[in-house]
Simulated assay, not measured.
Amino acid sequence: IVPWNAPAVLLARGIGPALAAGCTTVIKPAAQTVLFNAAFLGPLLHDPRLPAGVVNVFAETGHDGARLLASSPNVDMICFTGSTAVGKDIMRSAADTMKKLSLELGGKSCAIVLADADIDAVAPKLAAAATIITGQQCTAVRRVLVHRSKLDAMKRALTQALQALTVGNGLDAASRIGPLIDPTSRDRVAAMIDRACNEADDVLLRGRSLEGAGAFLTPTVVHHQDTSAFFMQEEIFGPFVTIESFETEAEAVARANDTIFGLSASMWTNDGAAGLRMARALRNGTVWINAHNTLFAEAETGGYRQSGIGRLHGYDALADFTELKHIYQAPGVVGRGEARG
């Protein structure tokens, strides 16, 4: 079950290990990208080396077909990337058949910036990581945790970096932030951001919808210390990022882990030992050091807690599409006297 935000990559990383493991597949693309997925899959479906019926595709505007896949006893495994709420629905539907699940779900990815980091160098990278696919990526930076001694510098630098990103049509080479997937999503995200701005300690940059065609929304960044605020806990799937400060490594780790999610995080420091030490303490499936959103087909990715179960990419991706079996054969020949050595 493929989402709309990265329809090529997210389809390939699911169907690849499935076919490699010898499975037949049924693909349900998102309604928003069904034409793209059809064009993307066309060469595969018509490849004479692939037997008919190994790869199957259907499209729908609702969810009835997806529910049938999740509940059917004829389906052994579901691979889904999307929201945590829908992931939970799939788990409920799949419970009666106890089928295997690979779920990559929501995230609230944080970037922890230690006192020794060069804020002016780091801020543009964080701005890019926060606005990848206009913030419509589960691993996008949502929270920036910075040492208190660098808080003011980060406020200034990140605000300037986000302001410098041009919002516009993706076919324009000058554009760095494109539209949200559709006006409905833009309006929902904008409403959440407006509420967050009204509750935040400090609004550093307030985004706005652009006039004219396209679901465009400029970035927002706020400073807030209370991790229980809704916008510190809930995934806002758009160009929205928060800044908070910490005093010690222990506080930074505690703040970063104060969430139901655990998909990804990043450490920013020149102290390699500190970066590795804190990366091990973070409850996330992926932790980058001095980078963010650096993904490899060879390296497994997936989440802790309510960011999902199972792994995609890498060798372990095959495990979700296979079953382990123990076969024991006794030595000797049945019914032929003593067993031969």
Rank of each mutant, 00 (worst) to 15 (best):
P7I: 03
A8C: 08
A8Q: 09
L11Q: 05
I15G: 07
A18T: 10
L19R: 04
T24H: 06
I27S: 05
A30N: 10
T33A: 03
P43I: 02
H46W: 03
H46Q: 12
A52N: 10
V57F: 00
H63M: 14
G65R: 06
L68C: 14
L69P: 05
P73S: 10
D76C: 06
T81H: 02
G82K: 00
G87V: 12
S93N: 11
S93W: 11
M98T: 14
M98I: 15
L101R: 11
G107L: 08
C110F: 06
A111C: 06
D118C: 00
I119M: 06
A121I: 00
A121Q: 10
K125A: 07
K125W: 00
A127N: 01
T131V: 09
A140T: 07
V141S: 00
L145P: 00
L151R: 09
M154R: 08
K155R: 15
A161E: 01
A161H: 03
A161C: 04
L165A: 09
A174K: 10
P183R: 08
R186Y: 11
C197Y: 06
V203L: 00
S209L: 08
F216Q: 09
P219C: 02
H223V: 11
Q225C: 14
Q233K: 14
V241M: 05
E247L: 00
E247M: 01
T248F: 00
A250R: 12
R255F: 09
A256W: 02
T259S: 13
N270E: 13
R280W: 10
R280M: 10
A281E: 13
I289W: 07
H292K: 04
N293V: 04
T294N: 14
F296E: 14
A299M: 12
E300L: 08
T301E: 14
G302I: 06
Q306G: 02
I309C: 09
G310K: 11
L312F: 10
Y315L: 15
D316L: 11
V333Q: 13
R336D: 14
A339C: 06
